[in-house]
Computed example of a mutant assay.
Amino acid sequence: MNNKPTIFITGAGKGIGAETALFFAKQGYRVAATDISETDLVMLKKKLGGSHFYRRLDVTQSDEFAAVLSEFASESGGAIDVLFNNAGIAFIDDFEKVTLEKHLSVTDVNAKGIQIGAFHALPYLKESAEPAMINMCSLSSEYGVPSEASYSASKFWVKGFTEALNIEWDRYGIYVCDVMPNFVATPMMDAAHGNIVDSVGIHLKASDVTATVWKAVQNRRGVHWEVDTWRPRLMRAVTKFLPQRTRRAIIKNLSGY
């Protein structure tokens, strides 16, 4: 039986997930690295080593998610210490230029995947002495972002879901929060450029998000952890006090609509 603290990460094959897996492993955690891409998991295993747990996982498949969680927990006395619901996808373009299939897949992975993971992980989190569930949100949950309507909406869902379970699961001693980064230099963003991305810019690295995840797990306070550089932080701090019409105009201008 493994005696190390444990973290279960979805979408761990590359980007933020892989960076988080590597970081937590260095902190002494045993990592469950899961991803829909077996190729990406093989590449991660070469860096992380064979002592961790690697499984292909489609987060939209309830039975599959339940089985992989159960298998990992059984190696740790029935407990999982941290669940990092990181898996996510995005498509940036005019709403009608993205196929309905892609829109629905964004909702399935970004929202349904977290819902399924939370439901099946709860029994194992309850068995931990200091359990935490961290959900991947986004600063696009602050105001609906044109050209990424489905992605932005999925993150509004994550934000509300996190707020609710942060209150509900407090009675079990489970700390629930989300991380809300601005655009991050990851393989997902390499394929998702648009006017809004070019206007705002990509100033964050995966390691910036990982550092915030670690801080949240250690601090165990707060519900939403923003990840951004100082200029956008300052701009958002100012715009929050502006009239709704003005905020809308700013978003409209930034997104090129």
Score class of each variant (00 low, 15 high):
Asn3Val: 10
Lys4Asp: 10
Lys4Gln: 15
Pro5Gly: 13
Ile9Phe: 06
Thr10Gly: 05
Gly13Phe: 00
Gly15Asp: 02
Ile16Thr: 04
Ile16Lys: 04
Gly17Asp: 05
Ala18Asp: 02
Glu19Phe: 04
Phe23His: 13
Phe24Ser: 09
Ala25Lys: 11
Arg30Trp: 06
Thr34Phe: 00
Asp35Cys: 00
Ile36Arg: 09
Glu38Gly: 01
Glu38Met: 10
Leu41Cys: 07
Leu44Tyr: 06
Leu44Glu: 01
Lys45Val: 02
Lys46Glu: 15
Gly50Ile: 08
Phe53Thr: 02
Phe53Gly: 04
Tyr54Val: 01
Val59Leu: 02
Val59Pro: 00
Phe65Gln: 00
Phe65Leu: 06
Ala66Arg: 11
Ala67Pro: 00
Val68His: 02
Leu69Asp: 00
Leu69Thr: 00
Phe72Cys: 05
Glu75Trp: 04
Gly78Trp: 05
Ala79Ser: 14
Asp81Ala: 10
Val82Asp: 03
Leu83Val: 14
Phe84Asp: 11
Ile89Met: 14
Phe91Ser: 01
Ile92Asp: 00
Asp94Met: 05
Lys97Val: 05
Lys97Leu: 13
Thr99Gln: 13
Leu100Trp: 12
Glu101Met: 09
Val106Ser: 04
Asp108His: 08
Ala111Ser: 13
Ile114Trp: 01
Gln115Ala: 13
Ile116Glu: 03
Pro123Val: 03
Lys126Phe: 06
Glu127Gly: 10
Glu127Lys: 15
Ala129Gln: 13
Met133Phe: 12
Met133Tyr: 10
Ile134Lys: 11
Ser138Gln: 05
Glu142Ala: 08
Val145Met: 12
Ala149Trp: 01
Tyr151Asp: 02
Phe161Glu: 09
Ala164Gly: 13
Trp169Gly: 05
Gly173Glu: 11
Val176Ala: 12
Cys177Val: 04
Val179Arg: 01
Pro187Gln: 07
Met189Tyr: 04
Ala192Asn: 14
Gly194Leu: 06
Asn195Lys: 14
Val197Arg: 07
Asp198Arg: 14
Asp198Asn: 15
Val200Met: 13
Gly201Ala: 12
Ala206Asn: 09
Thr210Tyr: 10
Val213Ser: 12
Val213His: 11
Lys215Tyr: 06
Val217Glu: 10
Gln218Lys: 14
Arg221Val: 11
Arg221Ile: 04
Gly222Met: 08
Gly222Thr: 07
Val223Glu: 03
Val227Trp: 03
Trp230Gly: 02
Arg231Tyr: 09
Arg231Thr: 11
Met235Cys: 06
Ala237Met: 12
Leu242Gly: 03
Arg245Gly: 03
Arg247Thr: 04
Ile251Val: 13
Ile251Glu: 01
Lys252Ala: 10
Asn253Tyr: 05
Tyr257Asp: 09
